[in-house]
Design a binder for these strands. Structure first.
Length: 567
DNA sequence: GCCGTTTTCGGCCCGACTGTTTTCAGTCG
């Protein structure tokens, strides 16, 4: 079983953690961390790249040494460097780094002085009053540790984007209404449309920061104020979501927005470019020596470092800076580009069809594919539904309703359509809805076989993941993407907030392979068409332009593409 | 550990807040 990209990233992160506790060169540590992030976001598996004989040192931040270690991990599942480090320090010690307030220095102190390498040992030592005696520790640190250890909540719980929006948008509106506040925006990974966010980064411009800080900490849903200074504060909401607020003067808005949107790796890379131009970037502006040359708007910051504007969704240091410098940044698909939705399934068709039609029209859509669930419908029911769609189409109000049917892909790759005539439908939407945990080879074979069906149109929610609930299937997604392209079928990017499936890294693979993506809401209620914005965010993170997305086409073009899927 | 129109050495992004300290290290983002 060859190591996956996330296995490789885990090894590199562990090496970085251990080196940090050993107080090794900080830049060496960063090289491991950067490599971990790079590998995670690669889309294609490093193992396959190696198998194809590709040169990993061409990846940014990967040199001879790291390329060798990647090969070693792919082949053996581990690498000698990690094993050596584990001889110097207990492997469990990295779990201590996850405890808030503990960094490498304090962890090292705990280990050297008290031989502590697990949270349990730490808890016992705190109870014995031993920890407060250590240099760099005191009563407050001890109390904070006790609280953190008692919480037992995993520190790496992330919030789906839609959940973060539910809490973040009202808070943003609350801040915007404070007298003296000019701008109030949510930056960070939220603005980059990451599928989940670890915390919310709010940015406010105001003359009087003290008032804003006070009102922020008084916000009704705040459960705990973790820190509060003149221009920066951190709180935790009752649901556990951490929110950071930063207040800057209006003239620094663009620089601060850019800075707090990140990602960290993107910022570091941009600063390096700025440095080459003898410029310094921080959250207050762009500086040449002491003189401020930009900062009021994000555009001014880009202009100062002679780069074109880079959309927030691209700012991950995954090649966007090279593309920007080469003038090859993609024009990303926008919400207005979407002319339809190829997968909506009203729960009660007769009752809700009109609501859907109206909601779609308001979004200036031209078509909706109404998806009927094959497995839960009796033939009579089905005919009734199809008739209802026909009637709605006859009424003709600038919106075309297409007929789609959802079929399960059986474990052997056959389409489980019961006795339904697939020819009655414009679109046949296949999905894996069972046996999610098949081994990679079997799961891949299953899907490839389904794609071979002469009526197959759309592969829905391809990885089957549910954020925080179900891991993606072990599927060779790049291979499925290639098969879909050859077969002229579409892959869905399902916009349901807990799915966001296809994930961004695979969108990018689809773009490179030339496969078409359908950004669908998967809505069961008309209001859920709103979810398209989350799917769109994921698509943009995957560098998709309008031409990569099938539902940006006109009805006529779509019909032609649908015809081409039929074998 | 990586990288190069400052190129094989010597750099590598930058600032706020807290707590433990009497001027700053550690952590965090």
């Amino acid at each position: 079983m060859p190591a996956s990209n996330s296995d490789i990233a885990k090894v590199f992160d562990e090496i970085a953690d251990l080196l940090e506790i050993l107080d090794e060169n900080a830049f060496r540590i960063r090289a491991y961390r950067n490599a971990a992030r790079l590998i995670e976001g690669l889309g294609v598996s490093a193992g396959q790249m190696l198998a194809k004989g590709e040169d990993l040192t061409e990846l940014p931040g990967i040199g001879k040494d790291l390329a060798g270690k990647i090969r070693e991990i792919v082949e053996t599942g581990t690498c000698a460097a990690r094993e050596e480090l584990r001889k110097k320090l207990p492997a469990t010690i990295t779990t201590l780094l996850k405890i808030p307030g503990l960094g490498p220095k304090r962890v090292q102190t705990l280990y050297r002085r008290l031989d502590i390498s697990t949270p349990e040992q730490l808890y016992a030592a705190v109870k014995d009053g031993k920890v407060r005696e250590l240099p760099g520790f005191g009563e407050k640190t001890e109390a904070a540790l006790l609280q953190a250890l008692g919480r037992r909540a995993p520190a790496d719980a992330r919030f789906p984007l839609a959940v973060a929006a539910q809490y973040g948008e009202p808070l943003r509106a609350y801040l915007a209404k404070i007298p003296g506040v000019n701008d109030a925006v949510i930056a960070g990974s939220y603005r980059r449309s990451r599928e989940t966010v670890g915390d919310l980064d709010l940015l406010v411009t105001a003359k009087d920061s003290a008032t804003v800080m006070d009102r922020f900490c008084e916000y009704p849903h705040v459960a705990d104020v973790k820190s509060k200074g003149d221009t920066r504060a951190t709180v935790v909401l009752a649901n556990g979501l951490q929110v950071d607020l930063r207040v800057v003067p209006r003239t620094s808005f663009g620089a601060a927005l850019y800075y707090f949107t990140g990602s960290k790796n993107h910022n570091v890379a941009v600063r390096r470019i700025a440095q080459q131009r003898k410029l310094k970037i921080n959250e207050y502006g762009v500086f040449r020596g002491k003189r401020r040359v930009a900062g009021e708007t994000e555009q001014s910051v880009f202009k100062a470092v002679r780069l074109p504007f880079i959309a927030p969704e691209l700012r991950e240091n995954r090649g966007e800076l090279e593309a920007a410098q080469a003038g090859t940044l993609p024009t990303l698909v926008a919400l207005d580009d979407l002319r339809g939705d190829l997968n909506v399934s009203p729960r009660d068709l007769e009752a809700e069809l009109e609501t859907f039609v109206e909601a779609a029209r308001q979004r200036t859509m031209r078509y909706l594919a109404i998806t009927l669930p094959a497995r839960h419908m009796k033939p009579a029911q089905l005919q009734q539904s199809l008739a209802a769609i026909d009637r709605a189409n006859e009424a003709r109000r600038g919106l075309v309703l297409l007929k789609a049917v959802a079929v399960d892909i059986a474990e052997n790759g056959e389409l489980d359509a019961g006795n339904i005539a697939l020819d009655d439908f414009d679109i046949v939407t296949g999905a894996v809805n069972s046996a999610f945990d098949l081994p990679r080879a079997k799961q891949t074979r299953r899907v490839l076989r389904a794609l071979e069906h002469p009526r197959f149109t759309l592969f829905a929610h391809p990885t089957g993941r549910l954020l925080n609930r179900r891991e993606p299937c072990d599927l060779d997604v790049p291979r499925v993407i290639r098969a879909a392209r050859e077969r002229k079928c579409f892959l869905e990017l399902n916009s349901q907030p807990e799915r966001l499936d296809l994930p961004d890294v695979y969108c990018r693979v689809a773009r490179e392979e030339g496969a078409l993506i359908a950004i669908n809401s998967g809505a069961q209620r008309a209001a859920e068409l709103e979810h398209l914005r989350y799917g769109l965010g994921q698509a943009r993170r995957g560098w998709l332009g309008a031409k990569n997305v099938v539902n940006t086409r006109t009805v006529a073009d779509l019909r032609a593409l649908l015809q081409a899927t039929r074998l």
